[in-house]
Amino acid sequence: MSGTEQKVALVTGAARGIGLATAQLMAEDGWRIALLDRDEPALKEAAANFKGEAISLLHDVSDPQAAPQAIRETLNAFGRIDALVNNAGVADFGPIEETDFTRWRTVMETNLDGVFLMSQAAIPALKETKGAIVNIASISGLRASTLRVAYGTSKAAVIQLTRQQAAELGEYGIRANAVCPGPVRTKLAMAVHTQDIIDAYHDAIPLNRYGSEREIGEVVAFLCGPKASYVTGQIIAADGGFESTGVGLPALRAT
């Protein structure tokens, strides 16, 4: 595949976790990757160890000026964009009465506004390639749970935004889908999940385990690629069956 034909993906929140795993998987499949993150040390480390053709974009998706600049930088480097993976996100868990407006806005600015801004900026380039948008939502956007008033609401909004994108952009050949990860064995999750929480999740998940970053990345990569060419407007829970079993983990309750 020549350089002009080789597909290009822009992945936000790509310095670690699901974003980095997705970028690595897509690079293995021959994609060129634009790695975007606001954490400069982590981004440099990820880029230094990245196996595949890639560029680094140091931006914060919550900044309205960042999205058009990131798109320009990607087009300047690669000449095209075939997929946008909106993975960047922040987690802030706490009881409703302790979630003040500052905490609420901090979550919304990245988790929702960032997805909107990046997608809007990428539309002209995606029209040219009949490309794909994959938004990373969460199982917390599909059903309510404790301590997630801002996070869960932001991810539910991302799900609705995805459907809007699919409905309005389909006529241009642009597909939009969302992936909703369940509990994933990330370094962050393992650092904050007590053994009681881990055991409770295992009890509630039919597959009886956490997912891996790479397993989520496989779903994202599929949705970006040609094998999903007739898939749009879909909300896919990559959660080991967690959504099918209901909610209510005692270990996650505040009292």
Rank of each mutant, 00 (worst) to 15 (best):
T129I: 05
P226S: 15
V85G: 00
I71R: 02
S244T: 13
Q24N: 05
V8I: 13
A14M: 14
G248D: 10
D39W: 06
A156P: 06
L147Q: 06
N87M: 06
N49W: 00
L117A: 03
R253W: 09
A46W: 10
R38S: 10
W104V: 12
N177E: 09
A47E: 07
A238E: 07
K127P: 05
A125M: 10
A15R: 00
R38L: 14
P68Y: 08
I197Y: 00
G182I: 12
A9I: 03
K155D: 06
E218Y: 00
T74V: 09
E73L: 09
G225L: 06
T22A: 14
T162I: 05
E97I: 12
Y230P: 03
I139M: 09
M1K: 08
E128W: 06
V247S: 13
I96V: 14
A254S: 14
I33L: 15
A167H: 06
M26A: 08
E109L: 04
A228I: 13
A14Q: 01
T110C: 02
R16P: 09
E168R: 12
P68E: 10
V85P: 00
A238P: 13
D39H: 13
A200Y: 01
I197P: 06
R16Y: 04
G241S: 09
R38V: 00
I123Y: 06
L57E: 12
E109N: 15
I216L: 03
G246K: 13
E45V: 03
V115T: 15
Y210V: 04
P181S: 10
M1C: 06
L58F: 05
A9L: 03
G225D: 08
R253L: 04
E171Y: 02
S56A: 15
G17R: 10
A9M: 12
V107C: 02
A67Y: 01
E171A: 11
G19Y: 07
M108C: 11
M1A: 11
D29I: 00
A191P: 00
L25A: 04
G211V: 04
L161R: 07
A42P: 00
